[in-house]
Design a protein around this nucleic acid. Structure first.
Lengths: 335, 335
DNA sequence: CTGAAAGCGCTAACAA
DNA sequence: TTGTTAGCGCTTTCAG
């Protein structure tokens, strides 16, 4: 319903005294145009401030170099290191592949308006399996990031969070800790659940018992972490080590520890998860488990790009490994 | 270049045994269709899993209910309360107005590919004035959010940050503080600069002198705030009150204070800016200056929507007022 | 209430 | 190297 008429390819053709085809060629940088005409067209474009109508281009060419990045809209998503790294990674890859990216935050309830996209990257799927299904039914190339998908036949690239959780457990156990607590992330997310699962598996293997009170169900928020920390630190049998399933939560644990007069790592060891650079500037270097989110996102775009251009056919299933980053927030328990 | 052929309106028409016009009518919910046909078409759509091609719709109708939200891509944008509130507000308004939203993060260097948008919302403009100019030249309705724009003839809706800064200064002065320090936000942003400006104005009016060391140039990051706090707290003439120009930074100041054994507000008063709910769950209720970002974003969408639909013509210039929120982090200075 | 037909602005054969 | 022409999938007159 916008009123003003926009400049079209015809106007440019008229002004440059060439056919619209030639204008189209210049716009698409096809080599088969005489230099003089290129110059004339470019000048006309500049004078008229012409921009091609993307809808028409898409309709005519059938092709589409715009990819959608859809993210679950759970509260706090924008506070999460995860989201930022995904966006950075996707953005970076799109830039180098000359893809346009459209960002979509969803709670999974509305159908996605995605048929103007060449491909879709789902960054984690929580409540939105239906949307993936739909996209697949539309024959739009899809790739799920950060999620091992079993029930839908779609390609994915994920982090091995089970291994990540186990790394944390093994490290703490190796240091000699017996009273080990954890603050989980959102257990509805696969990452959160797997981290927890791997962690408990590690403790089990080491025959370490974990009373229920040592497991606090957080949700990645600082708030939940604070509550957990206050709870742990006021127990009679205070844990000697805590695995916070995100660095951000670990930072909050450290803050609470300071507030309550506890020393880190002397009184309690803390290990995080992410390798969030924010943790570099706290009062103490945070030992953590690094997960290659940026790399995963980048790789995801490249694979999707191959799907879109038919350079790759077969489904892809990739799991990337996290790794331990030792800094200063852990030590063996006090005798 | 995607290969598989998608279902088109023709397929639906054939299956429902009606004309494509009728299918189009059903899709667009025009009332002039016989019930039986509506049912047949809807069934065909469901069976074929048909989705209209948005590009074709746009091309044919000329209309466009997609708006772009463009945000500056400065580092840390996704850690900022500002960004989240903007997205929430815009998202909320889009939902109720049935607009699609496309999210674009930019550093201002690349021209925006925006001609498939019905209108554009610029959330703050930092390095990207050119993009606004361009959009205007394309006759795309535009609205700038969070920025008082003087040099470009465009509508805007902003927060009166000067007043906001002054509110903070006045409050601290009113409490009796003389040694008042501040940690600025990013001074390259108008908000950051104005906050600082208003604050200094408030101190000037009260004839309070502020040595250079009392002004720390931060950038909204926790890191910069930590450095500032450590600096302030180790001065011989430690300030008795600090204005941190975002709640997030204020929280970091409080964390550092605890680490260094200082009490809040007994030893030092802290006032923030934003009214970030995150600040509700710290060790102490944060006194702050609230700015109605969510409301601003929502209102912005509504105005843009009116522009797009020709319901409003004249340029708009709105400044919204911040307000003081008193909680527990400030008190008069120790005698 | 319905359908035929004319585009929307552009790309992609096909000729020239 | 260029232009002509036929659509891409849909909306929108305009008759019926």
């Amino acid at each position: 319903m916008s009123t003003t008429k926009r400049i079209s390819i015809k106007d440019v053709a008229r002004r440059a005294k060439v056919s619209i085809t030639t204008v189209s060629r210049v716009i698409n940088k096809l080599p088969t145009v005489n230099k003089r005409n290129v110059a004339r067209v470019e000048q006309a474009v500049a004078e008229l401030k012409y921009r091609p109508n993307v809808s028409a281009q898409r309709l005519a060419s059938g092709s589409n170099n715009t990819i959608g990045l859809v993210m679950p809209g759970y509260p706090g998503i924008f506070h999460s290191f995860f989201a930022i790294e995904i966006i950075r990674g996707v953005g970076h890859a799109c830039e180098s592949l000359k893809l346009d990216m459209v960002f979509h935050i969803t709670d999974g309830t509305n159908p996605l308006n995605t048929n103007f996209l060449g491909g879709i990257l789902f960054a984690d799927i929580i409540e939105n399996r239906k949307q993936v299904q739909e996209a697949l039914e539309q024959h739009i190339p899809c790739l799920v990031i950060n999620n091992v998908v079993q029930d839908v036949d779609v390609s994915y690239i994920a982090i091995n969070n089970i291994k990540g959780g186990k790394i944390a457990a093994d490290y703490l156990v190796g240091l000699g800790h017996k009273r080990i607590a954890t603050i989980t992330g959102n257990l509805k997310t696969q990452g959160g659940f797997d981290r927890f699962d791997g962690f408990m598996r590690g403790l089990d293997e080491a025959k370490i018992e974990t009373p229920k009170e040592y497991v606090y169900r957080g949700d990645y928020s600082r708030r939940s972490s604070r509550q957990a920390a206050e709870f742990f630190f006021s127990m009679k049998d205070r844990p000697t080590a805590i695995f916070a399933q995100s660095d951000d939560m670990a930072l909050e644990v450290i803050a609470v520890a300071f507030e309550m007069g506890l020393r880190i790592p002397e009184d309690v060891s803390i290990i995080g998860f992410d390798d969030n650079p924010q943790a570099l500037y706290g009062p103490i270097g945070l030992t953590t488990v690094r997960q290659p989110i940026f790399e995963m996102a980048e790789k995801g775009v490249r694979i999707l790009h191959e799907f879109i251009n038919g350079l790759r056919e077969e489904k892809v299933q990739i799991a990337m490994d996290p790794e331990l980053v030792v800094r200063d927030s852990c030590m063996p328990p006090a005798a």
